[in-house]
């Protein structure tokens, strides 16, 4: 092989590799900031970012990477969802394109378990209703109306599908809600909260807290 021929082949190969790497690079660039690991320190900006985190449907694989790899983006979970809370990364989302999410501030999950039953892959696995782990609710006691003595509310406590095991009043005659271990993070409380600044939201469940599901 001549030197010219070899150079041609090598440059063509390099160009091919470069072009092949483009979508991967784009996917990395386009990935939303919220999905990169958030450093563990108290930081208002990160707290706001964490609040905006979308939830995965119930029964989702715990590791985000495993979920993205398992989900084929068929949309079946959304097609069976009675409250239509499951939405999809339709255009953004980088490698998460076409994967489902739930924006609890818009519409919470009613824990009907239809999505995990219809999912053809292991992305959503069938788990018991009490073992669902979409996250856990957090309450901002500096904003919640009863906590700052701005009246009575109890919307979150009334709507909770898990009942007293998940969220309850701190004292029977005060409407100040506290989150309990039974919370599965469905986000219905977020949906119904009347406060404009959303003092209740769902965060990822800490590693060693009660509900632990496989994978």
């Amino acid at each position: 092989m001549t030197r010219r021929g070899l150079l041609k082949k090598l440059s063509a190969g390099a160009a091919l590799l470069g072009i092949a790497a483009l979508p991967f690079g784009f996917a990395r660039l386009l990935a939303p900031a919220g999905d990169r690991p958030i450093p563990r320190r108290i930081d208002i900006a990160n707290k706001i970012k964490a609040r905006r985190n979308y939830l995965r449907p119930p029964g989702a694989l715990k590791s985000e990477a495993a979920f993205t790899a398992a989900c084929i983006g068929c949309g079946l979970c959304g097609e069976v969802c009675p409250p239509r809370c499951i939405k999809f990364h339709k255009s953004g989302g980088g490698t998460q394109i076409n994967t489902p999410y739930i924006d609890a501030s818009e519409k919470g999950c009613i824990l009907c378990n239809k999505c995990m039953n219809v999912c053809p892959t292991e992305a959503l696995t069938v788990v018991k209703r009490t073992e669902i782990n979409m996250g856990v609710a957090r309450i901002d006691r500096a904003a919640c109306y009863p906590w700052v003595d701005k009246g009575i509310c109890g919307a979150c406590v009334s709507i909770c599908p898990q009942g007293k095991s998940a969220i309850a009043y701190k004292h029977w005659n005060q409407y100040r809600p506290i989150v309990k271990d039974g919370c599965v993070g469905c986000g219905l409380c977020v949906e119904v909260c009347p406060h404009p600044s959303q003092p209740i939201w769902i965060v990822a469940r800490p590693e060693k807290s009660k509900i632990q599901q496989g994978a």
Binding site: F24, C71, C74, T95
Partner: peptide, 23 residues
């Protein structure tokens, strides 16, 4: 495999058509 995401579904027309009809 490299992205760890079923990215081929984003360039496969029958998958796109079905999904976009639903979307």
């Amino acid at each position: 495999a490299a992205t760890g995401s079923v990215i081929i579904a984003a360039i496969y027309p029958p998958a796109i058509v079905g999904r976009e009809a639903y979307f």
